[in-house]
């Protein structure tokens, strides 16, 4: 994650969280994404869309600093640990013997560290987070008891408690039941209204149109970046052209 002093100052002045300049990312020498340039403004809510294998997850990983740019540059306003991230493939051990409350308390890591105790105030925070996602009263239950949708909601609760300035989500609604999706979309909107920057990789065009003011279309390279009303049609056109060809 490259941060120059001047870049930081500039970003703070202009409220820019990420500045990308011809960013190229890849794995093991092979390019997966090329030529992405633009900015994510502070407080923006952007959906990242595009066909499968188009480099959407790759971009997120680059933004998080898990992939170093192969070419081009990427400037981020915040240290990596301050970013909130919801990964796509769930690496979580579903039947790990831990309670819901303890899982959510992981979001407080930055404050508690390895040894710090969870204070009453923090437990209240956890309680509120669980209430926000509709899991109130689930604190003492084992995470193995949660359904798929409930599990995802719990992960959101953890992000809520973490309260980062930027939240990156990689296909957060895949395989989640409708009621849960509604709850979580509301949460995203709450974050947006509170001035958090939200980036989400999504497949559902209608959802993007309805909830996300900004969009970035990727298909191995940058197709369009701007208001979702403008970006989505270009994506549809490209898909239509492909079908006809």
């Amino acid at each position: 994650m490259m941060q120059s002093v001047s870049g930081l100052a500039a970003a703070a002045v202009h409220g820019i969280d990420f500045e990308l300049s011809n960013l190229c990312l890849g794995y093991g020498g092979k390019l997966a994404l090329r030529g992405v340039s633009g900015q994510f403004a502070a407080g923006s809510m952007t959906a990242i869309v595009g066909p499968n294998g188009g480099g959407k997850s790759t971009l997120l990983k680059g933004l998080l600093g898990q992939l170093a740019p192969m070419q081009g540059s990427l400037r981020c306003r915040y240290p990596r640990a301050a970013l909130g991230y919801l990964a796509q493939a769930c690496e979580v051990e579903r039947d790990f013997p831990i309670s819901v409350e303890d899982f959510v308390s992981m979001g407080l890591w930055a404050q508690t560290g390895a040894l710090g105790a969870v204070s009453d105030a923090q437990r209240a925070q956890i309680s509120m987070a669980l209430a926000t996602v509709g899991l109130q009263g689930w604190q003492p239950r084992w995470i193995a008891e949660l359904s798929g949708g409930q599990f995802q909601r719990m992960r959101f609760a953890r992000l809520w408690v973490q309260n980062p300035p930027v939240i990156l989500l990689d296909e957060p609604f895949t395989g989640v039941d409708e009621p849960s999706i509604d709850v979580l979309l509301q949460l995203l909107q709450q974050w947006h209204t509170r001035g958090r920057t939200v980036l989400a990789v999504l497949h559902d065009r209608e959802m993007v149109e309805a909830f996300f003011p900004q969009a970035l279309a990727l298909a191995g390279t940058q197709l369009a970046w701007g208001a979702s009303a403008d970006v989505l049609p270009s994506l549809a056109a490209r898909a239509g052209a492909r079908r006809r060809a």
Partner: peptide, 17 residues
């Protein structure tokens, strides 16, 4: 104890921290 459990439970999350 805590980071060990976290690393077992959700290594991706811990990696970010």
């Amino acid at each position: 104890y805590r980071p060990l459990l976290m690393e077992c439970l959700d290594p991706g999350f811990l990696r970010l921290q």
